[in-house]
């Protein structure tokens, strides 16, 4: 029993080490070749070359931070949703929540830009949050009618497609040149994010994750079903509201800056649960955060270097890498049920 219980320690250590390695690789890799020694020089502040410093500190570093924050946020968001629905086949992307956020950001962005007002990043987050909540509300409404998770997932995917289609339509017919950026963004990419974006993301994501961590005691009881949780003294209704708000806020923040990044929210929590054999939210929430950060950072790194100098969307890479994980997970689950 004790050796199983401690598995999260090596997993978490491994994830943090991997994250550090990935961060360094992301600093190093790219179309501008900068030797390792000069990277350290830039990081420690002894810089000779202004342009190299700019590449590292203004382009690569903020992008790394954003990818980590967004990945962690999506993964924790997925974990909270899976807990809420008592089902591992749930995540912000697959339930259409990311796409709802995306649609709202696009709508608000176009509305503002057409009036000549630049949209602040904070307003972008709020728009995404509203869209995420609307999409979640829709999924919840369906979940009241059908208990079947597969129906719910199909409905989520449909919502996602519909929202994406409307977004594409908006982007196609928006004539302003600023909207060109929107196209990139709506594919799920971390390119062009700066330090201010990273700071703003952290301002939303860090408190939300901390709040999720503070809820780990009632969330743990909630794993035994809402009736048992209630009998143990959990205020189930509040907890459910908190879970929805936090998961929406987390996926909305990630989406507002990076667009929808596919499957991180569904696959990473599953991978982390398998790796740690844990159920305790107090352990799983941090592990999921670092896992999501590492996976997303790896995807973004690959997105930059795979077809260099052409860059692909991080979401495309994560889809290719994580879709098999999701499929394997569904097959295993089906198998377990018939056994």
């Amino acid at each position: 029993m004790t050796n199983v219980r401690k598995r999260w320690i090596p997993v978490l250590t491994g994830l943090i080490l991997a994250l550090a390695a990935l961060a360094f690789w992301n600093l190093y890799a790219g179309s501008t070749k900068i030797p390792v020694s000069r990277i350290f020089a830039v990081l420690s502040g002894h810089t000779a070359d202004e342009s190299e410093a700019a590449v590292i500190l203004k382009i690569r570093l903020p992008r790394i931070l954003c990818a980590m924050l967004a990945g962690g946020a999506l993964s924790v968001s997925g974990y909270l949703l899976q807990t809420f629905f008592a089902n591992p086949i749930a995540g912000p992307y697959i339930l259409g929540i990311s796409s709802g956020a995306k649609l709202f950001v696009a709508l608000v962005m176009i509305a503002f830009v057409s009036r000549g007002i630049a949209l602040s990043a904070c307003a972008q987050v709020l728009a995404a949050f509203a869209g995420a909540l609307l999409a979640t509300g829709f999924v919840l409404l369906i979940s009241l009618r059908v208990r079947d998770m597969s129906v719910l997932v199909v409905c989520g995917i449909m919502i996602g497609y519909a929202a994406s289609a409307v977004t594409d339509l908006l982007v196609t017919f928006a004539d302003d040149s600023n909207i060109v950026n929107l196209h990139n963004w709506s594919q799920g990419s971390f390119s062009g994010l700066n330090m201010t974006d990273a700071a703003l993301m952290a301002a939303f994501i860090v408190p939300a994750c901390a709040a999720a961590l503070l809820l780990s005691k009632p969330v743990g009881a909630y794993l035994l079903g809402e009736n048992l949780a209630a009998s143990l003294g959990v205020h189930v209704r509040w907890l459910r509201v908190a879970l929805i708000l936090l998961s929406s806020l987390l996926s909305a923040t990630a989406t507002a800056f990076a667009g929808p990044v596919s499957f991180v929210g569904i696959a990473v929590p599953h991978l982390m649960k398998t790796a740690t054999a844990e159920a305790r939210p107090l352990v799983l929430i941090p592990v999921c955060f670092f896992g999501g950060a590492a996976v997303t950072l790896a995807c973004d790194g690959l997105a930059r270097v795979l077809f260099s100098p052409t860059e692909v969307a991080a979401s495309s890479v994560s889809a290719v890498i994580l879709a098999p994980v999701v499929i394997a997970m569904m097959i295993r689950r089906k198998g377990a049920r018939s056994a």
């Binding site: 591992p88 794993l223 009736n227 048992l228 009998s231 649960k273 159920a279």
Partner: peptide, 10 residues
């Protein structure tokens, strides 16, 4: 209660 529960990893 008679509810069936299936907690993962517990």
């Amino acid at each position: 209660l008679t509810d069936r529960i299936r907690p993962e990893n517990m």
